[in-house]
Nucleic acid binder design. Structure first.
Lengths: 342, 342
DNA sequence: CTTCGCATTTAAATCGATTTAATTAACACA
DNA sequence: TGTGTTAATTAAATCGATTTAAATGCGAAG
């Protein structure tokens, strides 16, 4: 615990053992040129004195920081994705810790600061690679990073397939959800979608349509209503649907919050769930298991995305084979009461 | 964007301008010894060539990493606190970014790895200071860090008051919640508490008791039931209370999940909320605003805790006055339908 | 024409670890 | 005893920026 003035340095350690710093360094690296006896002496002293190498010095020499930066733009736009962030973080750290890497978390408070902040991270050598958590499509700052050639793993879809990406399967999840309703015998399935600025909205709408098509159910635009991913907008969406006077016996919502709003509105209208309308949401937020009836939903393992992304960026840095450049983590259907066939 | 082989170094910059590295360094640091003309030349070139200093080199020389580590033990125990972690992260990064600091997020996958992981962070000079997010009381690893003398801000209560701490006011929040019920005229107020291993359970129970005392209401142990912070345990707790046959007109739960479970159980038992039993939870989880009726609760600003903690650790490092060593962030009552006086 | 003082500039050391190239030691063999 | 070979060790350079101490240039004063 000698935290008096400075830490024990390699030079100190070498002097104590009675060898040169070069020998001490080689000994700790288990270099074959160092004799077994010397190695043992150095290792013993290092253990005894609790020698911990100064990684700043090491990084300077090695030109590597053994650090990955996880960047997420801190804009209001991506606020709705926060609940999953911790899960992602867990997956990423799990791998990094195991590989001896550090994690630098970076976020820019304002849009105008973003560019400078990202630029700095790429050029100041604090991190060797970046995992990018995108806010939305069309983000010029993200384009700059991805196209700069700096080692990057992008969490989402990117328009050049030489970029390494790891993404959720929003399309496949929506397909699963819709198929589940179809298999339960529902044929008039409504869909609450989100704003089309978000790729997720587009993908889930597409998955919904594809399932209908595969089951030979005609796509009816009047069964689709747009909302904004809040619970309140889910309530409004159901009012809109009911107002249109078109009957429906199933409902797939582009997220759980809107699905919960929809359940409230249906309940208030005296429509029973799942008997009259079966409901499936998306995201598997904690609340989904606690509603009455509990909400059937689509789960995406952000944890898996984190572990895969971290593994890929490290493989990329160490020159190993990265495998598939594009990875899609499959979605999973979680069946609960809101769609249970009685 | 010259990312060809290596980055532009200070030496390169100096050569281009036609001065020595020393002059270039002093010029960029705006040292009075450098002439205005030279300064202008160096600055112009730095801007034009997009020179970004290598922070590893700078750190080595300065013996400072300009980095704060945020450490949270990744044990199952603290899983229930996850939803707030992102909020804390936001608060911390807001301050760090503004002060030009970096954030290293560290977590240890297993208990046995913890000690080594923390030791490393303290000794390898990757971070200058630590913000500690504790899992539970009685954690020997945390003790080691706090007592090592390494600059630390501890997020919670610590038994030596020379340690800098920032904490939520669990006691005050519970007092607020109970007082709110008392002011609504309730006198038989039940309490669902959590396991006594957690300081939060103890503090909230104490706040509840103090409010009762101040309002001259006798504390009745048979109105208190222990659960484990899950929704299911909240359901069970109400069954237990009803089973005891002791009437109650108010209920304060040590967290929102149990409160929501309690609401479910009361609803199932045909007891109306808030007319027959008014309910207050704790934590203001997202779900609390979405239940029917919406849940009155206590909000603790983790964001504020983050900003205060970050400010204090930086002040501590820069040798500035840190102010109060112990800071308690006040809790806030959020009144919703579950306790609304009709 | 020196010499002193002041304003600028720069050479060199430093931070801590790694690695290359050079040196020393040790031993076998002629 | 001298020489060649291998094994083990170490001196020195390096990474990039900062900072101290030394050097330089220039004009003014004697």
């Amino acid at each position: 615990m000698s935290n008096k003035k400075g830490n024990l340095t390699l030079k100190d350690l070498a002097k104590i053992v009675g060898v040169s710093p070069a020998t001490a360094s080689l000994a700790l690296a288990d270099d074959p040129r160092v004799s077994a006896k010397t190695k043992e002496m150095v290792e013993e002293a290092a253990r005894r004195l609790n020698y911990v190498p100064n990684e700043i010095g090491r990084s300077l020499r090695a030109k590597r920081a053994e650090t990955i930066a996880l960047i997420f733009p801190n804009t209001p736009h991506n606020a709705f994705s926060h609940p999953y962030f911790v899960e992602l973080l867990e997956g990423v750290t799990e791998v990094l810790v195991q590989k001896g890497f550090h994690l630098l978390v970076s976020t820019a408070p304002t849009e105008q600061n973003e560019q400078a902040a990202y630029d700095k991270i790429m050029r100041n050598r604090r991190a060797d690679g970046i995992i990018l958590w995108p806010a939305s499509i069309n983000d010029s700052n993200i384009s700059r990073i991805v196209e700069s050639g700096f080692p990057v793993v992008y969490l989402g879809k990117w328009h050049h397939n030489d970029v390494i990406t790891v993404e959720r399967d929003d399309y496949g999840g929506a397909y699963l959800a819709t198929e589940h309703l179809l298999q339960a015998g529902r044929r008039r399935i409504a869909h609450i979608t989100g704003p089309m600025e978000f790729q997720v909205s587009i993908d889930r709408l597409d998955g919904y349509r594809k399932a209908l098509e595969d089951y030979k159910v005609l796509y009816d635009p009047s069964l689709v209503v747009t909302a904004d991913y809040t619970m309140e907008s889910g309530v409004a969406a159901v009012h809109e649907l009911i107002g249109r006077g078109i009957p429906f016996d199933g409902l797939f919502s582009s997220n759980d919050r809107m699905a919960i709003g929809a359940m409230k509105a249906l309940g208030a209208a005296g429509i029973s769930i799942p008997d009259e309308v079966a409901i499936v949401g998306c995201d598997n937020i904690e609340m989904a298991s606690m509603t009455v009836p509990a909400l059937t939903t689509i789960h995406q393992s952000l944890r898996t995305i984190g572990t895969v992304a971290a593994t890929k960026i490290i493989d990329l840095l160490s020159g190993q084979e990265v495998g598939d450049k594009q990875t899609i983590i499959p979605a999973e259907l979680i069946v609960r009461e809101s769609s249970r066939v009685n």
